[in-house]
């Protein structure tokens, strides 16, 4: 990989001061599991790496209104932390579902939300695809077994994160530090579709850092579930996944938030499905109807029509698991 200047930041303020307004000039590094991969493949060749040490933002705070997770908290910590396991089991399930023990020890929640796509055309430096500033999405008419069935165009990547759909279902927000101070952004408006921003997947500027993930406290009677289907049992990204957060009263759904992973360029909210189950007791038939509604606008490419029934079944099972 290309050599670079290096700074280990004391805190986020100093880290921001080391970053600039050009993505190629400086990059922030947490666990480094995604960024180093991109650098070794020469997809990105920053002149400067700003390292945010793991200890900088490694905390999980439980307040009456929210559970606040520092951005450098590792995925392994999310898997095992008693607060997460007790109050946000879906988030612990999402953490366990991803990568390998070694990578979960390294990767951070902030980095996971901001990781780059895994589309094989994007990851191959030989293809000057749209995501890399080129003029073609090679997946659109190419080998697109793993690409998007919802929200695609002009790029058909899928968002690779497992934490993102679950955190979105949990109505989480991110705190972002930048040169002008901090801003708090709900995940609903954090991720951006390719038709808005072709070369990035979220609203972050080159000199901004996600510092915290804030998950509002769920009312009594709430449940969260994350269900993921992958080709390999371990160390694989989602073919389809579903994050579900519901609040029940006497078995009736009061509040529901649903997001799908592995099917769209961003973690994909499913408001149609949410509307169908709200105010009802969830039966297997209603779960099926809701799941079908979530996928009704799906537009498969040549090789990925299988994802439609797969995503429907994944969501139906996740909904029923949330009721169990």
């Amino acid at each position: 990989m290309k050599n670079f200047e290096y700074a280990s930041a004391r805190d986020t303020r100093q880290a921001v001061s080391f970053l600039g307004t050009d993505w190629n000039a400086a990059r922030i590094m947490g666990g480094g599991t995604d960024l180093l991969d991109e650098m070794k493949e020469r997809l990105v060749e920053p002149d400067r790496i700003v390292h945010l040490p793991m200890a900088a933002l490694d905390y999980i705070k439980s307040t009456p209104r929210a559970i606040v997770i520092g951005a450098t908290t590792t995925i392994a910590t999310l898997e095992t932390h008693p607060v997460i396991k007790q109050h946000l089991p879906g988030l612990a399930q999402a953490a366990t579902s991803l990568a390998t023990p070694q990578i979960r020890n390294m990767g951070t929640i902030g980095g996971n939300l901001c990781q780059r796509p895994r589309c094989w055309y994007y990851r191959n430096a030989e293809y000057p695809c749209l995501k890399k500033g080129g003029s073609t999405c090679y997946a659109k008419d190419g080998a697109n077994k793993y690409n998007a069935i919802l929200g695609g165009g002009p790029s058909y990547i899928v968002h690779p994160s497992d934490i993102a759909p679950m955190a979105l279902a949990l109505n989480a927000s991110v705190r972002i530090a930048g040169p002008k101070g901090e801003r708090l952004v709900p995940l609903d408006s954090f991720f951006t579709l390719p038709n808005k921003n072709i070369t990035r997947e979220n609203i972050l500027e080159p000199n901004e850092i996600v510092t915290e993930i804030i998950v509002p406290t769920l009312p009594v009677g709430s449940r969260s579930v994350y269900l993921k289907v992958k080709e390999r049992d371990t160390q694989d990204f989602a073919l389809a996944s579903a994050g579900v957060a519901v609040t029940l009263k006497n078995g009736v759904v009061q509040v529901a938030r649903i997001a799908l992973g592995g099917v769209a360029p961003i973690p994909w909210r499913a408001p149609e499905a949410e509307a169908i189950i709200k105010g009802h007791k969830l039966t297997p038939q209603l779960a099926q109807t809701a799941a079908e509604a979530a996928l009704k606008n799906a537009k498969p490419l040549n090789d990925n029509a299988y994802k439609v029934p797969l995503a429907i079944t994944t969501l139906r099972r996740a909904l029923l698991a949330a009721m169990a």
């Binding site: 590094m29 180093l36 990578i103």
Partner: peptide
């Protein structure tokens, strides 16, 4: 445990 190839 970490992957030392992905650790600076």
């Amino acid at each position: 445990n970490v992957m030392s190839c992905m650790t600076l």
